[in-house]
Amino acid sequence: MIAPLIFEDLQLAAAAPHRFSLEVPAHRTLAIVGEEDSGLEALGAYALALSSPPHGRVLVYGEEIATMARRAALAFRRRVGYLPAGDGLLQNLSLRDNVGLPLRFGSDLPDRDIDGRLQVMLAAARLSRAAHLRPARANEELRRRAALARALAFDPQLVLLDRPFDGLTNRAAAELLALARGGESAEGSRRTVFITGQDLPGILLNRIESRYRLVDGALERED
């Protein structure tokens, strides 16, 4: 079975002395930590071809999004959940509308079905009571929950999380990780989760199957 996410001979910064290759196995949670200026935060964007690495390529479900035509790339990205650093929520929409936006824009489901799915997602992300708030009125935890719920709108099998736990309590971080993993199956977690960040909360270390540290552009295994 092909790994859902593969980094091949990737160079994160033009000045980085090393390159790395990595496969993120299905149904596993894998995290890479590193310094802020290591270029680590661009991995998610590279995977979705939102930007290009100085060298190397990224395969998602065995395909390189960077080589696809624009419309095909946009459609393909809906198969991946992406939580960018700083949440990326639209400030002029409520948390509810932010979560529902990808469904309303990218699916042909009737409004009634979308509303139903939205209720389930808001409840799962513990957002039901705060869903009416605009991002500017919500605290960081609520915004992160909304951004993750939005990333999971299409129930993707692969989720990319960039600095998802910064500034969160251990309890909130654990809940977000559980939500991203989508429950457990015999093979591991239901979803494949790829996390990047500067650090990971200690409470999560035993829930993340593989951990790496990026040093000078090369990966060192930590677990």
Binding site: G86, D87, L90, P102, F105, A151
Partner: peptide
């Protein structure tokens, strides 16, 4: 407004969700 969308990472987030910023 659009410059703020860009600076706040909202445009990249839209692209990441498969929504073309030109469309939305």
């Amino acid at each position: 407004e659009l410059a703020t969308n860009q600076v706040m990472g909202e445009v990249e987030a839209l692209e990441g969700m498969g929504i073309d910023p030109l469309h939305y």
